[in-house]
Design a protein around this nucleic acid. Structure first.
Length: 180
DNA sequence: GATAAGATGTTA
DNA sequence: AACATCTTATCA
């Protein structure tokens, strides 16, 4: 059971987004541990118009400039949360959005960024958590590697900027992907 | 202080 | 296709 360390996240965001496919996301909630396999991700970087940090550091986006391997959780549309993992070196903004999980433990209905946060009880209290530490309430473990031929690259969903960039990645033929 | 828009999900 | 619902950023 290995855990990707900070150097795993301190790399090109697109590469991290692809390498996170097949990893597990784990959440400690009281006595139980909720876990799911990451099957869909999206990349967001400093020079990306759709990124929260595109126009520079703001109170919300400051997390994206911090140490790679931290979580970035924010509220969207007043009612849903989304989880990201910070990438790139400190002071360089970048993150990978977790869009869908294949349920493992008590989970179900995790085929969307808002839905998986609801299922895993992820809220802003889990912002800036170190996901390279299994003692955290949220962390990532290696689980299985995905062959390059099984990774589909396509355009991102739900944004109005840079809609033609193929920065969304998912595992081919997986049954737990977000909408379309 | 006000306002518009948003990395979504559900319902019709 | 509409809407629920509220934080955040931006501007005054």
């Amino acid at each position: 059971m290995t855990i990707p360390d900070h150097s795993f996240y301190e790399r090109d965001t697109l590469q991290v987004a692809k390498d996170l496919l097949g990893c597990k996301l784990l959440r400690r909630y009281g006595d139980e541990i909720l876990e799911g396999i990451i099957v869909e991700t999206e990349a967001y970087t400093a020079n990306d118009p759709a990124c929260h940090a595109y126009k520079g550091k703001t109170p919300r986006s400051a997390t994206l400039f911090k140490k790679p391997g931290l979580s970035y959780v924010y509220l969207i549309y007043g009612m849903y949360h989304c989880v990201n993992i910070v990438t790139e070196p400190k002071e360089t903004a970048g993150a990978v959005l977790i869009r869908a999980l294949e349920p493992v433990k008590p989970l179900d209905n995790t085929n969307g960024p808002g839905k998986l946060c609801r299922e895993m009880k992820i809220t802003k209290e889990l912002n800036e958590i170190d996901v390279t530490n299994s003692k955290s309430d949220l962390w990532v473990e290696k689980y299985k590697s995905i062959k390059k031929s099984q990774i589909i690259e396509t355009t991102r969903i739900g944004i109005k900027q840079a809609t033609d960039w193929s920065w969304r990645f998912y595992i081919k033929d997986n049954k737990f992907l977000s909408k379309k």
